[in-house]
């Protein structure tokens, strides 16, 4: 038998084209002054960031924050005003302090003339969030959402994807579809176990606070993006609250890892008015929890199939199945 390692190294050596000429032709001139002009500012240290990324830096923090806010606001589907009462609620929201803050920050972002921000990490090239349009970011997710608005009940779909500007993080997309008018929707991101560390919402300054508050009309879909550290084994939990439009009361709760089965059941049930509707981040996060709960009662083969069915996409279900098989073989 041949020794694969030796043969492979030889194969690499022989089968690699020389493309240095192409690189050299495309290399832009670089003056030493260029590097000096780039001022690198320390990224503010926060308790919510884990130790491993404490040296993260950002070139122009203000621009990043403003751009992030701008991005998410762009993602929000324009609210449709269906009747007078709804219109007044929407107007009330628009005239609220939060809406005014958003508007002010959007204007600031538009006026911002500083160079694009660039994340810098210990061990990976970072792309600035502002280098990605919201469409590009959301389209990283292979989700499918019914666009006909025929759903009778409000529902939430979550997806995860590797964060393009920070490989140590994952993006969680929460899609909220409206089957009936609900208002004061509150989304919160939280780590399993109640700790909120490590979660960053792209569209808000406060990583632990309210993500999105608005009115959701039937047939509408709204998207919210979260950025979450990958390091924690526990999956992210998102809690979702909605109150009746007329009462305008909303209750919030931080999610905890109640288990895959429970969360999936909750995901497909109608939104409870003035109640908590916890959902669970899908794919890799669910898988981690599935493995964790594998030996525990109630995690039968049927439940595994239920999980796969609920993932609802062939590719993702297949990937999950392969991942599971790999882990179970261990």
């Amino acid at each position: 038998m041949k020794h694969f390692e030796d043969e492979y190294n030889q194969y690499m050596h022989c089968e690699t084209p020389d493309f240095w000429d192409r690189i050299e032709k495309a290399l832009p001139e670089k003056s030493p002054e260029q590097a000096v002009q780039e001022k690198i500012l320390e990224f503010p240290q926060k308790d919510t960031y884990r130790k491993g990324v404490s040296r993260r830096r950002i070139l122009t923090g203000t621009a990043a924050a403003a751009a992030g806010i701008c991005i998410i606001l762009t993602a929000s589907v324009t609210m449709k005003i269906r009747n007078d009462s709804e219109k007044s609620a929407a107007d009330a929201f628009r005239s609220s302090e939060k809406a005014k803050e958003f508007e002010a920050e959007m204007e600031a972002a538009a006026e911002e003339s500083a160079p694009e921000s660039v994340y810098i990490s210990d061990d990976a090239l970072m792309f600035a969030p502002s280098e990605y349009s919201i469409d590009a970011a959301i389209n990283r997710f292979p989700y499918t959402v019914s666009a006909d608005g025929s759903a009778e009940q409000a529902a939430i779909i979550t997806e995860t994807a590797v964060c393009p500007w920070n490989p140590d993080h994952t993006l969680i997309l929460a899609l909220i579809t409206g089957g009936e008018a609900v208002s004061d929707i509150t989304l919160k991101a939280d780590l399993a176990g109640g700790s909120s560390g490590g979660i960053r919402c792209l569209n808000l300054e406060d990583p632990e606070g309210t993500v999105y508050q608005t009115v959701l009309y039937p047939g509408e879909t709204k998207a919210v993006l979260f950025e979450q550290e990958m390091a924690a084994a526990e999956p992210a939990s998102l809690s979702f609250s909605a109150s009746d439009h007329e009462t305008g009361e909303a209750e919030e709760s931080s999610g905890d890892a109640a288990g895959v089965q429970t969360n999936l059941q909750q995901e497909s049930r109608p939104v409870q008015e003035a109640g908590d509707n916890m959902i669970q981040a899908s794919a890799a996060c669910e898988l981690a929890l599935l493995q964790k709960n594998e030996a525990e009662p109630g995690m039968s083969g049927d439940n595994v199939m239920s999980l796969l069915e609920n993932l609802s996409k062939g590719n993702e279900a297949r990937e999950t199945l392969v991942e599971m098989a790999g882990s179970f073989m261990e």
């Binding site: 038998m1 098989a325 790999g326 261990e330």
Partner: peptide
């Protein structure tokens, strides 16, 4: 790769098995 280590080792073992059949130790 952002995948569990068990998955990595399993896939690697699968690969080794296939390479053996192809005549590589």
């Amino acid at each position: 790769l952002k995948i569990p280590m068990g998955t990595v080792t399993w896939r690697y073992r699968q690969a080794i098995g296939k390479l053996r059949r192809c005549g590589y130790e």
